Amino acid sequence: MYERKIPELLDCGLAVALKVIGGKWKAWIMDCIRRGVARPSAIHREMQEVAPRIINMHLKELEEYGILYKEVYAESPARVEYKFTDIGESLLPVLATLETWGNLNKEYIQRNIDTYQPGTCRFLPQ
């Protein structure tokens, strides 16, 4: 089992929030579930750019954090859907705020990415 060499400092609210929703794909997974795409196979179809193994890993993490829970239906074949816990629901306004900020600033960020020169530690004048 992997043991961290440097302990995580989770006494800071921002560190906790970033642990839960940080990373490349967790917000997208949560948005899928928010929109009703709740079955793992449907999430995989929605997020074709991401390996199913990665999606499953993030779903498991979100479940371990208590953000999602897995509902297993007694059907044949078995049907599984992910749903938000109350604490997970409380994250949805945070994600909406982040999406709004991203939409308002995406051109600015893209422009800076396009003009950044590695090794100079500064942006080119516009």
Rank of each mutant, 00 (worst) to 15 (best):
residue 76 S to H: 13
residue 20 V to M: 06
residue 73 Y to S: 11
residue 62 L to Y: 07
residue 52 P to D: 07
residue 49 E to C: 06
residue 58 H to Y: 14
residue 94 V to A: 10
residue 10 L to I: 05
residue 57 M to Q: 12
residue 72 V to D: 03
residue 41 S to P: 00
residue 6 I to L: 13
residue 74 A to T: 11
residue 20 V to L: 09
residue 65 Y to E: 14
residue 4 R to D: 05
residue 114 D to N: 14
residue 8 E to I: 06
residue 112 N to Q: 10
residue 1 M to Q: 07
residue 30 M to G: 01
residue 67 I to Y: 03
residue 78 A to P: 03
residue 78 A to E: 15
residue 100 T to E: 14
residue 16 V to T: 08
residue 5 K to W: 05
residue 32 C to R: 06
residue 124 L to M: 11
residue 29 I to T: 07
residue 80 V to R: 12
residue 64 E to M: 05
residue 98 L to E: 00
residue 36 G to Y: 14
residue 104 L to H: 08
residue 77 P to M: 15
residue 104 L to P: 02
residue 3 E to W: 11
residue 55 I to P: 01
residue 14 L to H: 06
residue 14 L to T: 13
residue 26 K to D: 05
residue 117 Q to C: 08
residue 24 K to G: 00
residue 5 K to V: 07
residue 51 A to E: 14
residue 62 L to N: 05
residue 54 I to S: 10
residue 108 Y to P: 00
residue 52 P to W: 10
residue 103 N to T: 13
residue 80 V to C: 11
residue 84 F to W: 05
residue 22 G to L: 06
residue 71 E to V: 10
residue 80 V to K: 12
residue 98 L to I: 10
residue 17 A to L: 14
residue 23 G to Y: 11
residue 6 I to Y: 12
residue 84 F to I: 08
residue 56 N to W: 02
residue 92 L to C: 02
residue 112 N to C: 09
residue 90 S to R: 11
residue 115 T to H: 12
residue 36 G to S: 04
residue 102 G to Q: 10
residue 113 I to Q: 13
residue 118 P to Y: 03
residue 43 I to K: 09
residue 48 Q to L: 14
residue 21 I to F: 07
residue 14 L to C: 03
residue 1 M to G: 15
residue 56 N to Y: 06
residue 75 E to L: 13
residue 79 R to I: 15
residue 119 G to H: 10
residue 57 M to G: 03
residue 93 P to T: 01
residue 71 E to T: 07
residue 71 E to C: 06
residue 25 W to H: 15
residue 50 V to F: 00
residue 8 E to P: 00
residue 121 C to A: 10
residue 86 D to H: 04
residue 124 L to G: 03
residue 92 L to D: 07
residue 76 S to E: 14
residue 123 F to I: 12
residue 81 E to D: 09
residue 24 K to I: 11
residue 68 L to V: 12
residue 113 I to Y: 13
residue 55 I to R: 04
residue 91 L to K: 06
residue 101 W to A: 13
residue 66 G to L: 11
residue 70 K to E: 15
residue 47 M to T: 09
residue 22 G to Q: 08
residue 105 N to H: 13
residue 41 S to C: 08
residue 72 V to M: 09
residue 45 R to W: 07
residue 76 S to F: 11
residue 120 T to I: 00
residue 2 Y to R: 12
residue 21 I to Y: 07
residue 1 M to E: 09
residue 102 G to S: 11
residue 15 A to R: 07
residue 8 E to S: 07
residue 18 L to F: 02
residue 44 H to K: 10
residue 51 A to P: 06
residue 35 R to K: 15
residue 69 Y to C: 03
residue 112 N to K: 07
residue 60 K to Y: 04
residue 70 K to Q: 15
residue 110 Q to Y: 02
residue 59 L to G: 03
residue 113 I to E: 10
residue 79 R to F: 02
residue 36 G to D: 01
residue 5 K to Y: 08
residue 47 M to F: 09
residue 5 K to H: 08
residue 101 W to I: 15
residue 60 K to M: 05
residue 67 I to S: 01
residue 58 H to L: 02
residue 19 K to I: 04
residue 62 L to A: 04
residue 1 M to F: 12
residue 30 M to L: 15
residue 52 P to A: 08
residue 33 I to F: 12
